[in-house]
Design a protein around this nucleic acid. Sequence first.
DNA 1: TATGAATGAGTGTTCATTCAT
DNA 2: TATGAATGAACACTCATTCAT
Lengths: 204, 204, 204, 204
Amino acid sequence: MSRLSRHRRLRPRKTPSQPRSAETVASIIEAAAQILETDGLEGFNTNAVARRAGVSIGSLYQYFPGKDALTVALMRRETMRFHEEAAAALDQRSGKAALEYLIGASVRQQFKRPVLARLLDIQESRPALRDAVPAVDTLQSLLVTIIKRAKPGQRRPEVVAGDLLAMIRGLVDAAGERGESDIEDLERRVRAAVFGYLSRISRG
Amino acid sequence: MSRLSRHRRLRPRKTPSQPRSAETVASIIEAAAQILETDGLEGFNTNAVARRAGVSIGSLYQYFPGKDALTVALMRRETMRFHEEAAAALDQRSGKAALEYLIGASVRQQFKRPVLARLLDIQESRPALRDAVPAVDTLQSLLVTIIKRAKPGQRRPEVVAGDLLAMIRGLVDAAGERGESDIEDLERRVRAAVFGYLSRISRG
Amino acid sequence: MSRLSRHRRLRPRKTPSQPRSAETVASIIEAAAQILETDGLEGFNTNAVARRAGVSIGSLYQYFPGKDALTVALMRRETMRFHEEAAAALDQRSGKAALEYLIGASVRQQFKRPVLARLLDIQESRPALRDAVPAVDTLQSLLVTIIKRAKPGQRRPEVVAGDLLAMIRGLVDAAGERGESDIEDLERRVRAAVFGYLSRISRG
Amino acid sequence: MSRLSRHRRLRPRKTPSQPRSAETVASIIEAAAQILETDGLEGFNTNAVARRAGVSIGSLYQYFPGKDALTVALMRRETMRFHEEAAAALDQRSGKAALEYLIGASVRQQFKRPVLARLLDIQESRPALRDAVPAVDTLQSLLVTIIKRAKPGQRRPEVVAGDLLAMIRGLVDAAGERGESDIEDLERRVRAAVFGYLSRISRG
DNA sequence: TATGAATGAGTGTTCATTCAT
DNA sequence: TATGAATGAACACTCATTCAT
């Protein structure tokens, strides 16, 4: 079985070309986000999402072949929103500025919908969904590019990128869980972690 | 009423006094760990756990008042095993040594059963289980003590401890997810993150 | 908040607007009645009811949030059927005629489905269901009205109504249990009990 | 299959000849009564009874072949206690006095443990238990004797006895359910019902 | 004889998914 | 294309009963 066919149930059933459909799809995805935020993973079921979206369960399945596809779509939406901001990091002059930009974007993104971000992070590691959101890899390669620019001699930039991503995610998710609201403070701490790590790892 | 007694469905139903019971309880908890590792959260149901433990479903419920209680028991087992090692950190001469010791313990613990550790970390944030494993707080206060010793002037040592824990957890969980096996290497990177963060945060 | 809304698990999940739904709901309630009659309380479980109704267990739970809600719905159906007849008692000329009418209605109702009536009477006293079938109180107040008319000077008409209801219920349930089939005879005896009681209690 | 063998599981496993056993049996029966009173039918399970009795579940099954046997034993105990009082009714001079005595005994019995009495009344009609408590028939024949003496010409004294029993039971159970505490008042009302019924039924 | 650990059939309930309308 | 009634596999949990110790 080819790799793609394994994921047939994860991809949207049809690309909504008509504006009416696009609206419906968007409303379902947003409903999924809201359910996740208000009721948590435990309340996240397709019937609830459809109800919240003001759409019949049948319609939901018309646009998404299954529950996981819906989750993936939501993850994609969030990741893409993030990417729009994050991609601008490459426009920064220095590698350091690019990193700082990225950190800022990450923290801001997390602060917008902290609960949602955390729950999606968890979903992301589910074997059934992994690899279904290519944007994660994209983020990683974006970071690799930045790292190469910021620290040209760095060995294993992929590993470093992975570590930075993991650290940032760990820090902001924990902050979200604690209900922190001082965005400046958190950003400062994340910067300390990122640049502190980078300064030490280069010697390694 | 103590904080724990409020969660009647989370505490073991009876403390197994007889050796046979103790065995059964242990085998159930270990079965839970194995199911989590092999089948993930999706396959983690009480019937499967009982079957894997070679025990009837009735026996499982004789010792655990509900599924969550079983999860909590497993979390407690893992946390206690970790604590036995981690507590020795305080015996180290310097604060730095204590931190290095703790990092080493964390990484080793993670490498023993990476998948299990990651899944339990996720469970820990479930509202229903939060606060049910006091050891987490204990770990945090242990870290606070170490930080105070390592960096006496540090403002907000609790925040720093929370950040370190989040970073370490993020790093090792991600490593586990990737299937890393070079424990030395990971330890070095975690040290870079921790000490790098600490060196920068103090100036803030 | 009304008294009923507190018992969310006792009220029907949705009022069936579409004819198909209404049919399903009715068939489930009737199946519940039949199971109760043929298998008794011991055989009265949701799966059996669904099977007898020729409906999936999922459908049952689509209309009734729980087993008790189904029981309550059945009780309501029976009570309402009775009320349609009983209410006409007030149209009678004299208080005595009204009482006789009510007795007749009670006995006939009981003779239609004696086993069912008896089992529902028992359910009615279950703490979880009490107060969930307002019609019982209605019956009592109907009787109070009649008594006031039949014996104007009667002290404590509520107590008298309660006693009469208890007597009638005791008599007809016992008759049903014995399998009596002579409806005329039973009615005569119930009349003796009711009017005999009333003639003596007034002196009290 | 003979009638007796059908009920093998309802009879005590062994007649406790040794005083030690008799104590245990009694304590189990009393525990059953208490569980019924405090937790209702829903909490009435063999493990709970054994625990309340301070006895192992194994011991319970040593003396009672099954749950129903325990229920029957409790019913027997209550009925026999009642009979000791009720039998004295026959010593009364007149039939009327005998009836009044019986009513008094019934009401007093009911007031001692109203909840228990009501729940046992309900159990009594369960097909599995019916006929297992001969004392009920005995009570009925005692009443028949009294009726024959009180109203010598009465046709169908068995029917009348059944009706009286049903009425009395209905009245006192309802009073218990309402939580009435004025025993004199209830007795007066029951007398009104019984003698009122008898005065009318004789004319029939 | 007493114990209580163990059993497992049975029950209530949920929810992803289908399909007739 | 939209609807929502219907489905049923799956799961958490209970409790009467057994039996090795």
